[in-house]
Design a binder for these strands. Structure first.
Lengths: 235, 235
DNA sequence: AATGTTTATATGTAGCTACATATTATTGTC
DNA sequence: GACAATAATATGTAGCTACATATAAACATT
C-alpha cells in the first residue's frame, strides 16, 4: 500500500516530526513503540531508533526504557551556539584581525575566579588582558586567567604576538566547558579600552574550561556595542 | 592482548577523544579509518562509526567520505542552550510566577519585523507586549508579533490570563528557529516597565520561529539586570 | 493500604552484512 | 599539459539478530 522504496532515517524522523507539528501527536502524548512504527512505515526498527534518537536530541520527544516515547510536554527552545576563534570571526566579516596585549602577569586569583574555576583555594595563575581588533578598531576585550599548573607551557608563549585564545584552543583541548552570557554597563576601564561611552550596554561572554577536574582557563570577553550572538536550529 | 570485554561506543568515543586531548592526534591530523580503529580496539566498525558521529557532532573531528576523519584544526566552542518556558524558569528558582499583559492589538508590522520574519511585505499581525514576574517583581518584558495567518487561533486566546509564550510553545510547534542575543541600554519605556534605572544594561533574547516557510512569531525578550544565560557541554 | 518482589516490555547497545555515496586518485585521451 | 572518464576507497546508511537494561505494571506479602 505504501511505497516500499527508500526509507532513510531522516525521512522517518521528518515523518514523525511532521505528525508532532500537525497535531497528530500532541504534547504529552505517547507514541507507538518503535517496532510498530517500523512496521507501519515498512522499515527496520533500527531506522526508527535512529530517527527517535535524533528527535530526542532535538528536544522534540522524550524516551524512557519500558516507558516508551512521549512528545515533550514542556518543550524547550534548544539551540546550538558555536563560538569560533575570534580571529576567524573577524576575518569572516571580511575585516582585518588585530590583537593587542594589554597586561600579562602572574597573580593570585581573586575570590570570584576561585569560585568560577571551582578551586579549593586561591592560587597563582597567569592573568592576561588583551584586546581583539577588527579593522584596527576594538572588537572584544578579554580578561583571562590561565592555570599555570594545568597549562605551564603558556609561560613560554609570547602573548604579545599570539593571543592566548588561539594558543589555548589549538593546544589545550578541554573536556568540560561552561558558558555564561550576560549584559554589563561599560565602566570607566572597559569604556576606555573598548573606546565606547561609559555606561554603554555590552554583551559579556564568560567561558571556563577544564580538563578532567583540572581548571585550564576562564575568560570574560566583553564585546563591543552591537555585538550579537546568533544561533539557529531546525531545517 | 587487550581486554575483549564490553566496548560501548561511548568507551570508544572517550578513548579517541582522550587521544585528541593528550596530543596523540593533534589538530589537523588524520585519524585511521574506522575499520582499522575497530580492529585495533577489538570492536565492530558500527561501534566506531557511532563514536565518530558523536565526536563529529561535538565538533571534535571532521569526517568526509573517502577523505577520512581529521581532528578539527579550528575547534569551535560549541554549547547547547536550552531556553525553557519562562514560567518554568521562574518556578525552578523557587519563586512565584506572575504574568501581566501590557498591550495587545492588531497592527501593521514595522520594517524591522518584516526583515526579521523574512516577510515579502508588511502585513497585519498581533502585537503583544507583556511582563513576566518573579515573586511579583518584573523579570522579563516581552514584545511579540504573532502571525494571525499562521496562528489564527491565537485570537481566541485570552492573553490577559495566559501568556502567548506558553500558548504558542504548547500549540504551535515550529520547524525552524532563530536566536539572537545582545545587550541594550534600558530606554525610558523599558526602564519603566522593568522598574530599573534608565541606562541599565539588559540582556535581550530575540527568538523567531517558522513552520516551514511561514512565520509564526518573533519575540524580543528584555531581561532584568543580573539575568544570565547558562550553557555547558562536555562531561 | 502499604510495601516488596517478580515479570513483562520498550528502548538501548553491539555486532554483522550489504550496498550507497561522495571524493580522491588514477588512468586514458586529446 | 589539460581535461575527461574510470577505479579505488572511506564514510554513510539500511537491514538484520541477539542480548542488555531500565522500569512500569502486575502480583504477592505483610
Amino acid at each position: 500500500m505504501c511505497a516500499q522504496v527508500r526509507h532513510s532515517w531522516k525521512d522517518v524522523r521528518d515523518q514523525i516530526h511532521r505528525r508532532v507539528l500537525d497535531g497528530t501527536y500532541r504534547p504529552g502524548d505517547k507514541l507507538p513503540r518503535d517496532e510498530d512504527i517500523a512496521e507501519a512505515l515498512g522499515c527496520a526498527r533500527s531506522t526508527v531508533q535512529r530517527a527517535m534518537q535524533d528527535l530526542s536530541d532535538a528536544g522534540i520527544v522524550e524516551r524512557k526504557r519500558k516507558g516508551g516515547t512521549h512528545v515533550r510536554a514542556d518543550p524547550v527552545s534548544r539551540a546550538t551556539l558555536d563560538i569560533p576563534i575570534t580571529r576567524r570571526e573577524v576575518e569572516a566579516h571580511g575585516a582585518v584581525y588585530g590583537y593587542r596585549l594589554v597586561a600579562c602577569g602572574l597573580a593570585q586569583t581573586p575570590m570570584q575566579i576561585v569560585t568560577t574555576l571551582a578551586l579549593p583555594a586561591p592560587e597563582q595563575m597567569l592573568h592576561v588582558q588583551a584586546l581583539h581588533l577588527s579593522d584596527a578598531r576594538p572588537y572584544i576585550y578579554e580578561d583571562r586567567w590561565i592555570s599555570t599548573r594545568t597549562a605551564p607551557e603558556i609561560l613560554n608563549v609570547d602573548l604579545a604576538r599570539h593571543s592566548a585564545n588561539e594558543w589555548l584552543v589549538r593546544n589545550k583541548p578541554y573536556s568540560r566547558y561552561d558558558l555564561r552570557l550576560y549584559a554589563i554597563s561599560a565602566d570607566e576601564g572597559a569604556a576606555d579600552q573598548l573606546d565606547v561611552d561609559p555606561g554603554a550596554a555590552l554583551l559579556v561572554i564568560e567561558r571556563t574550561t577544564w580538563i578532567g577536574d583540572l581548571p585550564i582557563t576562564t575568560v570574560r570577553s566583553v564585546t563591543t556595542p552591537g555585538y550579537q550572538l546568533l544561533a539557529q536550529s531546525g531545517a
